[in-house]
């Protein structure tokens, strides 16, 4: 199995890719928890005008009826007016697409953005919804029964790792 890509390098790569698309109406929203870590990096490096938004779409998830309320829902904070913005929605790993669906539903309860582009550190197989990333740091092969997740250590360094799926 190939080694997992370096999350730090992927962040730098995404910054370079996004420099070309950032405009005066661009704003960024990170999805809790891993997406928010990536978004913090990208937001700082791109020096965006609007403060970073954070979203936990726990209340919009489609698995609530099966799984109940997510363990530790965080408070969503969008400190700018979503109306008319070109949003960069940031997550760590794109897998089934269900989190992105939930996040988009929540975003529209804040207002009507001009556009939303999806930015992910890594994408993997297993989409269950017609969702694709406009900017993906890397494509990662994930063995069956495993999941790809982002970690942040005490110094704030990001790394991707595989763990057994629950």
């Amino acid at each position: 199995m190939a080694a997992l890509p370096d999350a730090e390098k992927l962040c730098a790569q995404l910054v370079r890719a996004l420099q070309g698309v950032v405009g005066p109406s661009t704003a960024m929203v990170g999805i809790h928890t891993g997406g928010a870590w990536v978004a913090e990096r990208l937001h700082a490096a791109l020096a965006l005008k609007f403060p970073l938004g954070l979203l936990d779409p726990a209340f919009y998830r489609d698995d609530y009826a099966k799984q109940g309320l997510a363990k530790d829902p965080k408070r969503s904070k969008i400190p700018f007016d979503v109306e008319g913005k070109d949003l960069l929605l940031v997550d760590d790993v794109l897998y089934t697409g269900r989190t992105v669906r939930a996040a988009m539903n929540e975003l529209f309860d804040y207002g009507r953005p001009a556009s939303i582009a999806l930015v992910v550190l890594a994408e993997r197989d297993g989409r269950q919804l017609p969702v694709c990333a406009q900017h993906a740091g890397a494509r990662v092969e994930v063995p069956a029964g495993m999941r790809l997740r982002l970690r942040r250590d005490a110094e704030g360094r990001l790394s991707l790792e595989l763990e057994r799926a629950a």
Partner: peptide
């Protein structure tokens, strides 16, 4: 606490 965030929105 996360629902407080919801109650502060327009919708």
């Amino acid at each position: 606490e996360s629902f407080v965030g919801v109650t502060e929105r327009d919708i």
